[in-house]
Design a protein around this nucleic acid. Structure first.
Length: 522
RNA sequence: GGCUCCGUAGCUCAAUUGGCAGAGCAGUUGACUCUUAAUCAAUUGGUUGCUGGUUCAAGUCCAGCCGGAGUCACCA
């Protein structure tokens, strides 16, 4: 049984007992509400100008969480809040049942409790719209007080907050408390929902079908990442949480759909950072009969559309930058971007040895032995030297073949593939290709992968024979896209950490002892 | 995993060279029939993340651990 952990909770427990003794139900079964806060205010304001008498007779029943209490004696004021806003309750002992009033006067019903009130709408002498309460009930008694934040709605309508709940760890671990007191956090997640809805609307209008594919997969693939593993007991089978949807979605175009998309969770067993969470939300789409330039076009239009829907503009503020998402965006090959932003032409160093020397001399990069040429181009030259410059939306295209096992080669050079990534605010936002639909080439890529990443390497890519079989049935030429939804939400809400756009970000658990399996980790 | 910084009351923060652990808010008691960061008077609240060490004396110095933030590594 729960015990109070501090004086404040002890007081609340005492009050709960006192309420019971007065016959008050702490957690009544039912509530009624005729008006939300916004509806009550709107209804009153609409009547007030034309017909003041009718406005004064407007009766409402409202409900919400108490956010401010001012007991003055035989008259008291309360602010309660629902999701849309807050409203004042004017409680006067003459206007209501004396016993009900005394629950407030004796502070048995207090800040953070949920209440229901019935009364007529009015304005106080100070001009604040309020409910003149005639009936008042407790809906839910709060045992643990929320962090103290005083909100004051100013004349210009903006809300000023006094006090704050800013401890990041506490906010992430107890997001419910964070949401309860920090309105701007609630707004971020409303925008998150809008972002996803806007994407769906856009892609539906493009004629794509939204689908769902397995999260538990016997063979993982479609990206290079360490998976989480689990086990199905009855089937005696190890399963992996997906690291991408790619291979399943492309199978569906073999099946006859022209275009499909999926928005869902991916899981990658890797480091966490301001832009990495172990589980994150991804959008992937595949559309037949277009190539990667067609995907570029969709990407630009989709991003602009979503930004417009969510923020009302295609120009957004991200940290210290104003970013213009209006199409078209700058498009550069990696090679051009290397010349422009890093001052090097990587084709001057066309093999791993010379590339390593150049990177070390020019940028002080310490290249690990055995790193491939393509990896150095993508991760060191692009990732470390170019990416931080890409604040305005930029498409970077034509990636080295060995880093792009599902992309078709470019016409001009088999060393490169028709692949692009795009960057906004210095963040990689997504990745796309002209998809490889040649089963012979794909089989060779799997073999190459095994050589490159095989034998105990963490990123080992399993050979997916069923995927090759699907390809042999005939796969239409197509363009495909994968992009991070969380990062787009960060951009549109100007949040600097992925944890601020994920409701319950992953944190180390507080009170578990290190398990034995952890000791095998380095 | 490496490095740097951080952890003090419910929340936000103080605490001089190592010298009695404090403030505001909220909480408690009382007053107040139009308050609004209400006001006025009085007042409670602490295993200073944990464990150990140095010292006459540790929030402060040292070591280890736990947790967080940042950064690097890692992340086709």
């Amino acid at each position: 049984m729960w015990q109070p952990t501090n004086k404040l909770e002890e007081e609340r427990l005492n009050k709960a007992q006192a309420l019971k003794e007065r016959g008050v139900e702490l957690y009544p079964r039912r509530a009624t509400r005729t008006h939300t806060t916004a509806e009550a205010i709107a209804a009153f304001e609409a009547l007030e100008s034309e017909n003041p008498e009718a406005a004064a007779e407007l009766e409402v029943t409202v409900a919400g969480r108490v956010r401010r209490v001012n007991v003055k004696g035989k008259v008291s004021f309360m602010h309660y809040a629902d999701e849309q806003g807050r409203l004042q309750l004017f409680l006067r002992i003459n206007d209501m049942d004396e016993n009900q009033y005394m629950l407030v006067k004796d502070k048995l019903i207090e800040i953070d409790d949920f209440v229901q009130a019935t009364g007529t709408m009015m304005r106080t002498r100070a001009g604040e719209i309020s409910v003149r309460v005639s009936d008042f009930q407790l809906l839910s008694k709060t045992m643990s007080p929320l962090p103290v934040i005083k909100e004051v709605t100013q004349d210009d309508g903006t809300v000023k907050e006094y006090g704050e709940f800013s401890d990041k760890e506490a906010r992430y671990r107890q997001r419910y408390a964070d949401l309860a007191v920090n309105k701007d956090v609630r707004d971020v997640f409303r925008k998150r929902a809008k972002t996803i809805r806007a994407m769906q609307n856009f892609l539906d209008d493009e004629g794509m079908l939204e689908v769902e594919t397995p999260i538990l997969q016997p063979i993982y693939g479609g990206a290079a990442a360490r998976p989480f593993t689990t086990h199905h007991n009855q089937l005696h089978q190890d399963l992996f949480l997906r690291i991408s949807f790619e291979l399943y979605l492309k199978r569906l175009l073999v099946g006859g759909y022209d275009a499909v998309y999926e928005i869902g969770r991916d899981f990658r067993n890797e480091g966490v950072s301001w832009k990495h969470n172990p589980e994150f939300t991804m959008l992937e789409f595949y559309k037949a009969y277009i190539d990667y330039t067609g995907v570029m076009d969709i990407t630009e239009r989709m991003t602009a559309y979503v930004a417009e829907q969510v923020t009302g503009s295609t120009k957004i503020i991200w940290q210290d930058h104003e970013i213009d998402l209006t199409p078209p965006w700058e498009r550069l090959t990696i090679r051009e971007a290397g010349k422009k932003y890093a001052g090097v032409d990587y084709m001057d160093t066309p093999d791993a040895e010379s590339m390593a020397v150049m990177l070390e001399e020019k940028f002080g990069e310490k290249v690990a032995p055995g790193e491939s040429w393509g990896r150095m181009v993508v991760e060191r030259l692009l990732g470390n030297q170019i990416e931080p410059h890409l604040i305005q939306p930029t498409i970077i295209m034509d990636y080295p073949r060995d880093m792009s096992p599902f992309a078709k080669p470019t016409e001009y050079d088999v060393k490169h593939t028709e692949r692009f990534e795009y960057f906004i605010g210095g963040m990689e936002m997504g990745n796309a290709f002209t998809e490889l639909n040649d089963p012979f080439d794909q089989e060779q890529r799997f073999v190459d992968m095994a050589t490159l990443y095989g034998k105990g390497k963490d990123e080992e890519t399993p050979f997916d024979e069923d995927y090759l079989r699907a390809m042999r049935y005939g796969m239409p030429p197509m363009g495909g896209y994968g992009g991070g939804v969380d990062r787009l939400v960060m951009l549109l809400t100007n949040q600097r950490s992925i944890r601020d756009v994920v409701m319950f970000p992953h944190l180390r658990s507080r009170d578990t002892v290190e398990s034995e399996s952890d000791s095998s980790e380095v």
